[in-house]
Design a protein around this nucleic acid. Structure first.
Lengths: 222, 222
DNA sequence: CTGAAACCTGAACCAGTATTCAACTTGTGT
DNA sequence: ACACAAGTTGAATACTGGTTCAGGTTTCAG
């Protein structure tokens, strides 16, 4: 459930300054602390998890923690950033390669649920940011919603979706995805990500109102 | 966790047992503590808010707190329950009196956003339950999603909406509502609840895919 | 080799705060 | 009036856990 990302802008190593490790040895220690923190925060939440839990799991001394992070809050901030970027990077390619916009949203949701199943700690970490580090929390969701709104608008310009797309649509779709991820990714896996994404795609495409077509079809059956 | 379901759920007085106040005076004190707790937890979060903050705001002594609640967690539990019931009770009538199902969902969202604007602390309290009292958190959302799914299914039986409604639809709609409430109820009020609900209702009704009709219309304009 | 910088260590410090308790006050039924 | 239950009080207790620090170890450039 851990990760080992390359040096991206969000790599906590580059954020800091005086605290950044200067040695290969130091880099390994910091990585170990970060990975341990992800597990501890994910399992027990921010307040339950203690620094000594983290350092114990990382296999280093308590004091070493403060060689790389200024405070408990600081590791947490670093983690939120890390997770937020990881989701985006995992979902993006599927969206890019979809043939049309509905298919893109479908693929995005499918991949999101898959990602969540492999990283169940993501909800505990990002959601708890609302209390520990509100700025990151806000940024994560505002950015995500904005990304959705922008790609819908582009699709509207291409004539693929109705022209009245707005920020409201972006937030609505994000909300659906977040809760479907919680229900079918974290809480239980009783449906395949693909099935769920298909249902949502259909709803997005034609709505849920019963149309004359539906009526005709059910009359045949009856 | 949840036991006495039949008791007036939003009356916290009945939740407790041995701790329930037996006097008018006691009832007032407990109410004061509960209200103060809602404000403190809402403003500062569970862990930041201290019992003495709460009792100070309520204007009672520290010890009085333990006359009515077993622990800090206990008040929190009581509050989550209280808020959850309050939303439901506020939104229900609007839904019941709607002429059709799409209108019902529209009215529900509109009223939800209105409620949130008057009770911004609701997000901090219910969301923090994920960490403080996971059982209540789960129960709140599972119940809410289920309520939506059930009423959609009824509408499907009446022939108002497509027949393939499922739990997925319930969770999707709830997710939209929750995030729209956060964005347009708590974070800012730059759109009217009514406008937002209308946009969502249209999306729910006909989807976002551009239809031949839309095409024809835009050609007239062009 | 050598000295300084980087790193590691964990006991000790300390602030905050949930919870307890024994004495005191108020309300009420008889 | 009386007595007992209900309610109130806030200092004292107990404990958790973040943060510091003084001293030891490892690394590596020169």
């Amino acid at each position: 459930m851990a990760k080992a990302q390359e040096t991206t802008p969000s790599d906590p190593a580059v954020i800091g300054d005086s605290k950044a490790p200067r040695t290969e040895r130091g880099r390994r220690t910091m990585r170990a602390i970060l990975d341990a923190a992800a597990i501890e925060f994910g399992d027990n939440g921010f307040h339950q998890a203690s620094i000594s839990d983290i350092t114990r799991r990382a296999g280093v001394a308590l004091g070493s923690f403060y060689t790389y992070f200024d405070s408990k809050d600081a590791v947490f901030r670093a983690l939120v950033r890390d997770m937020s970027d990881q989701v985006r990077d995992h979902v993006a390619p599927a969206i890019l390669s979809a043939p049309d916009q509905i298919a893109a949203e479908q693929a995005g949701l499918r991949e999101f649920i898959r990602f969540v199943r492999d990283h169940k700690e993501i909800y505990r970490i990002i959601d708890e940011a609302e209390f520990v580090d509100p700025e990151s929390f806000r940024l994560h969701y505002a950015t995500t919603a904005d990304r959705i709104t922008r790609r819908l608008r582009k699709a509207a310009d291409r004539g693929e979706v109705k022209g009245d797309v707005s920020e409201v649509h972006g937030w609505a779709i994000m909300g659906m995805n977040v809760f479907l991820g919680l229900r079918y990714g974290v809480w239980s896996e009783d449906e395949t990500p693909d099935e769920i994404a298909k249902v949502v795609a259909k709803m997005l495409k034609e709505g849920i109102l019963r149309s004359p077509d539906d009526r005709a079809m059910s009359e045949v059956k009856t």
